[in-house]
Simulated assay, not measured.
Amino acid sequence: MALGLLRQRPRRRARRRPGPVRRHRLAPGRAPPARRPRSRDRHRRPPAPGLRADPGGRDRLDHAHHPGRAPRGPRLALLIGFWFVEKRAAAPLVPVHILRRRSVIWGNATGLIAFVTETSLVFLLTLYLQEVLGYSPLATGLAFGVLGIGTVLGGTLGGRAVGRYGTRATIVTGGVVQALATLSLVALGTSGGWIRLLLAATFVGGVGNMLMIVGFMVTATSGLPDEEQGLATGLATMTQQVGITLGIPVMSAVATARMTALGDTGPQGVLSGVSVAVLVNSALVLAGALLAGTFLARRRTDHPA
């Protein structure tokens, strides 16, 4: 039945054939008659201020009305004013003292690094598989299935590790594992046999990355009063979104800078750019693990000032 549905051709609407075009002979010096507005033209809304319709039917920004972006000074002043108002308020909307907690600050910093590095690594390895090894998009997606299995396993082990060894040990261990697995990808070459190293490294790195993420979530949301749990969870979610958004542009800029310096956009140039970006990625993960091990060393319950 499914094959029959796929083989059915979509029905086409009967198109109305246009009638013969009438040609008007104009006297010399006489302008052509004005076209009567159609009903749809009468009800069409004018373009918004600052937008000008181009001949293609799309609206584009009219820089004549908006020569520059909105100034950042007023926005920054409002943000600073909001900080001081919330700091002195008896019942603030956003208790700013939560940002003084060691667990919130360094827990979110660790989570930011975890999301920046792993999401950008997927982008870098996509370039490697498609531009260097010549993989199709489908084969590339299937290759990253191994990474998904590693993250599932890491998420399962993360909760147990936190309960047995604590958040600090879990974050540091996961960061070191992810950094070593990422560092091994620097050895990738142009031969198709290097796919084995890529699969093994992404699996191990996925396990380490999820250990960091589980430790980060527990650290950033623990030891807080009930009325601050929602705010801490919102900060952790924001950290996740910022990390996912920030990682790919940063690492792609590193890879592009390397390819531009070499003047080569072929397979060898892409491989060199990816290798440099992978090295930076690994160093960033290791730095995050060391920061977590240093600043999350003391276990104490911080009280708001």
Rank of each mutant, 00 (worst) to 15 (best):
L124S: 01
A289S: 05
S275A: 09
G288N: 05
G205S: 13
R16L: 12
Q8W: 03
K87I: 03
R58D: 07
I98C: 03
A287N: 00
R30I: 11
T260K: 13
T119I: 14
W83E: 01
L121P: 03
A255N: 10
G158W: 08
A181M: 09
Y135G: 04
L79S: 12
L290I: 04
L246S: 13
G193Q: 04
G141M: 08
R7L: 15
R69L: 12
V274K: 09
P225N: 15
L286A: 12
L79T: 14
I248Q: 08
V146N: 05
G155K: 10
F82M: 07
G273T: 00
L129V: 07
L26Y: 01
E131G: 07
I98R: 07
R298I: 00
R300S: 10
L129F: 06
F84N: 00
E86Y: 08
T219P: 10
V162N: 06
D41E: 15
A139S: 13
R30T: 14
H97K: 08
T256E: 14
I195N: 01
L78M: 11
S272C: 02
G223H: 10
R36W: 07
G293I: 00
R9I: 09
R22P: 03
G273Y: 02
T126W: 02
V285R: 04
A143D: 00
T173H: 02
L138H: 06
H43K: 11
G166Y: 05
M212Y: 09
V96T: 15
V270D: 05
T119D: 07
F216D: 08
N209P: 08
G107W: 01
L157T: 12
V207N: 10
E118R: 02
T156C: 05
G174A: 11
E227F: 01
H65G: 10
D226H: 13
E118K: 01
N209M: 15
I171R: 03
L262Y: 03
G50Y: 06
V207Y: 12
G29N: 01
V254P: 07
E131T: 01
G163D: 00
R23C: 02
R7T: 10
S136G: 10
S136T: 15
G148Q: 08
L93Q: 03
R299L: 03
G134M: 12
A201I: 10
G266L: 06
G208C: 14
D59A: 15
G134N: 04
L183Q: 01
V177F: 02
P37M: 03
L284C: 09
G141T: 03
R101Y: 06
G230C: 04
L180N: 05
H66S: 06
P18Q: 11
R38F: 08
V280D: 00
M210N: 13
P33S: 06
A289E: 04
L26G: 09
T119V: 15
S184P: 04
T117I: 03
L188V: 12
V250M: 11
T167A: 11
R45E: 14
V254T: 05
G263E: 12
G68E: 10
F295V: 08
G29T: 04
T221H: 11
R22C: 09
R45G: 11
A109S: 13
P18D: 14
